[in-house]
Amino acid sequence: MSVHVKTTINGDQVEFVCGADEPLLDVLRNRLGLTGAKEGCGTGDCGACSVILDGRLVCSCLVLGAEMDGRSVETIEGMADGAKLHPLQQQFIDNAALQCGVCTPGFLMAAQALLRKNPDPTEEDIRFGLAGNLCRCTGYDKIVRAVQAAAKEMRG
């Protein structure tokens, strides 16, 4: 069975038809061309597919596309303001917080969700806030520093 869905993605009205059992991640990647969210595991254990759904951080592999009707999704593709990178994005580059980069979109979405809730997080807050995102390259050190730097910048 296919489902017809009208939803909002990064502020844009989007319509799609997907299988009833199709994860949102597959819809984003295969139907909408939004390949920024990555499938690292497909079981909610790595966070590479993280998106923000109605204000909450979720793994898009654990959401059905069919559920999306009338809801609102933010993905990595909507994070920058036009040509201007979000402070988190810029700080990830400046702090060498990425190596292979495949986990980076998920980390940025998780960091975004964290800083919205907690603009002045401790190192521990950051570490636990990002614990749902696996990175195998960096040992997390530079990621934590990038989030600290972005938080500071965003607080002004």
Partner: peptide, 9 residues
């Protein structure tokens, strides 16, 4: 339960 992502759901 799970991660922040999982707790959101």
């Amino acid at each position: 339960i799970g991660s922040k992502q999982v707790q959101g759901r």
